[in-house]
Design a protein around this nucleic acid. Structure first.
Ligand SMILES: [Mn+2]
Ligand SMILES: [Mn+2]
Ligand SMILES: [Zn+2]
Ligand SMILES: [Zn+2]
Lengths: 155, 155
DNA sequence: TACTTTATAATAATAATTATCATATAGTAA
DNA sequence: TTACTATATGATAATTATTATTATAAAGTA
């Protein structure tokens, strides 16, 4: 992982401990945390940070292209991996994983189709799979009735 | 379009004017309306309906597989087309269009990849493109800075 | 028609996110 | 170092979409 301070400075940010902590909390793992999760994680080291600051920091990082803001089941999650890739979102435990491998061409094909078929100018593309992760599949918890496009995450 | 009453009855619903109106409002067009839009549309003919009823009706239709609940830029939109297809979501005017043609295979490929690569059991799959529709592209309104995964819809 | 069940509407509650604004801090230059 | 100015932060309130509660109304049935 790259030097956070240098990267932030390069993007025109002032270097604050809050920003460094949030940066670390998102870029330092692959869990696609929500703002609330980042807040919880950061408070371990920096108990006085406010949730508002977490939200604003994440948003400014997003605008600077440092991270990807994901819309998963109506909540925002954050991803340090800004390369196009799809997500596997478990509706039972809430975990979000990257779907790696062989997708680059699919994304290109999708983007090409989207562009050429319609004249639509694509800024970003999100591909989310909803279902059950291997671990949750085994336990077979019942989530109740579901239909097409049911993207409910557990409480 | 099929007979609404018969279809609802088949799914075990009691036939009420509210349900027929909501059914009509969603299945009768391709605008991917939000609950609020459905509410507005339905009140033309049925002024006493409540927003709560619209929400509950849409949710029960979704659970019955009659429609697809889309997560677009953190809001729920509803789609009478339950076949897998992608969406072009304009961040300037808020319009959501289907991306038709040639996508069936892509979806199959995606689903296969998602399944076999990881053991993840897929219940549903959402593909959303965010950007500017042809009409908005021409007007070139500035939305401010944006980066990867910026899915903000206009106010 | 009378009866039972389910749906509706009014209302309140919830939860995630964003706005406001006074204070604190980072960067910078004397 | 210090003083200065712009920006960031934290406390708090506001907003917005969605869901919960519950008394009343309407649908289905016989
Ligand atoms: Mn990811
Ligand atoms: Mn559609
Ligand atoms: Zn799981
Ligand atoms: Zn548009």
């Amino acid at each position: 992982m790259m030097n956070a301070s240098a990267l932030l400075k390069e993007k025109g940010f002032r270097i604050t401990p809050q920003r460094l902590a949030v940066f670390e909390a998102v870029l330092g793992n692959k869990t696609h945390p929500s703002a609330e999760s980042v807040y919880t994680a950061v408070r371990e080291k920096f108990p006085s940070i406010s949730l508002n600051t977490v939200y604003k920091t994440l948003q400014s990082f997003q605008e600077a292209g440092l991270l990807w803001q994901l819309n998963i089941a109506r909540n925002l999650r954050y991803d340090g991996n800004t390369l196009p890739h799809a997500h596997l979102c478990c509706l039972r435990c809430g975990q979000v994983d990257d779907l790696n491998g062989g997708l680059a061409k699919l994304f290109t094909d999708l983007a090409d189709l989207g562009m050429t078929k319609s004249g639509f100018k694509i800024d970003s593309l999100e591909v989310n799979f909803y279902g059950s992760c291997p671990s949750c599949s085994r336990h077979a918890v019942n989530l109740g009735p579901s239909g097409p496009g049911d993207n409910r995450l557990p409480e």
